[in-house]
Design a protein around this nucleic acid. Structure first.
Lengths: 146, 146
DNA sequence: TCCAACTAAGTTGTGTACAACTCAGTTGCG
DNA sequence: CGCAACTGAGTTGTACACAACTTAGTTGGA
C-alpha cells in the first residue's frame, strides 16, 4: 500500500502499538490482565489509593473506559473501590493484598519487552522522546481545532 | 508515573497512536468514516476489488474485525461485497461510484496530519523506519514464543 | 474417487475507546 | 441562603481488536 508518508507514519504507529500490545497480551495472560489493566496496576503500584479522576488524567482514559475496567479489577480481587468521605462523588482505587502481591510477577515484563523491541538504551530513550513530542504536537493541533 | 524505560516506550506508542487516531476521527467525521474504515478505503483506492483475505494481511486484521467493518462500509454505500465465482468461499470488496468519489474529499487529510505531527520530511521518514523496524522486531519475538 | 485436512469468511463473546448522557454531590455567586 | 453551574463517576450505545468457533467450499493424497 503506497500511502503518503504522513499516512504511513500513522499506520506505522497503529501497527507498532498493536504489535506491542499483542506481546503484552501474551506476557500478561497468566496474570489475567489486559494491557490497559496492567497500566492501571502499574499506576497503583507506583502510588496506591488513587482517584479515578487521577488515573484517568494519567492514562488519558475517561470514566467510560475506567469505570468498567476498575469494576473488573475489583471483581478479580486486585483492587477495592473506596468512596471518599469528604467528597461523596469521588472514588479511590486501593490495592488489595492480592493486588500488591501481583507486582512481583510483573517484574520480568519490562525486560522482555525491551529485548523484544531490539533497541539499546539510547534507542529506547530517543524513541520515547520522539513519541512524546509527536503526541504533544498532535494533541496541541487537535485542541486548536476546537 | 515512573515506569521502566521499556514500559515508557510502549505507553508512548499507545498514547501516540490514540492521539493520532483522535485527530483522524475529527478529520474523518464529515465523511462518516472511522480510522480503520479509512485504511480499508485507502487500500481500495490504491487497488480496487480486493479479497477480504488480502485486506486482512495488508492491515493485519482478521475476519472478526473486517467482516463487520466491510458490512458497515457496504451499508454506507461505499463498497459492494462480491462473491468470487471460481472460489465460492472468497469475497471481494469493490468500490461503488460513491466510494470512488469519496477519494477526493480524503485528499486533504495526509497534509493536515503531517502538519499536526510537527515533523519535517526527514523526521517523518526516520520515524516511519524506526516504527517499522520496531514492529518487525516485536512480531518476530512474538512468533518465537509460540 | 473419496474424504480428511485445509481454507475463506462469518459469528460470538470479551474488553477496550470514546461520545453522549445521567445522576448525585459540591460550590460559588447574587 | 438558595440555586444554577459545575464536577466525578457511572451508564449506554457504537465500533474496533482479537480469540475461539462455525460453516461452507476446496484440495491433495491414499
Amino acid at each position: 500500500m503506497s500511502l503518503r508518508l504522513d499516512d504511513q507514519v500513522c499506520f506505522g504507529l497503529y501497527s507498532a502499538s498493536r504489535a506491542v500490545t499483542a506481546l503484552y497480551r501474551a506476557l500478561l495472560e497468566d496474570m489475567d490482565l489486559t494491557y490497559p489493566q496492567y497500566l492501571v496496576m502499574l499506576a497503583l503500584w507506583e502510588q496506591d489509593n488513587r482517584l479515578v479522576k487521577e488515573l484517568g488524567s494519567e492514562l488519558s482514559l475517561d470514566s467510560g473506559t475506567l469505570s468498567p475496567l476498575l469494576k473488573r479489577l475489583a471483581a478479580a480481587g486486585l483492587i477495592e473501590r473506596v468512596r471518599q468521605t469528604d467528597d461523596e462523588r469521588a472514588v479511590r482505587a486501593a490495592l488489595t493484598d492480592k493486588g500488591k502481591a501481583l507486582c512481583e510477577r510483573a517484574e520480568r515484563i519490562p525486560g522482555i519487552i525491551g529485548e523484544a523491541m531490539g533497541l539499546d538504551g539510547d534507542g529506547l530513550a530517543r524513541m520515547r522522546t520522539d513519541l512524546d513530542r509527536l503526541t504533544a504536537s498532535v494533541n496541541a493541533y487537535r485542541e486548536s481545532l476546537a
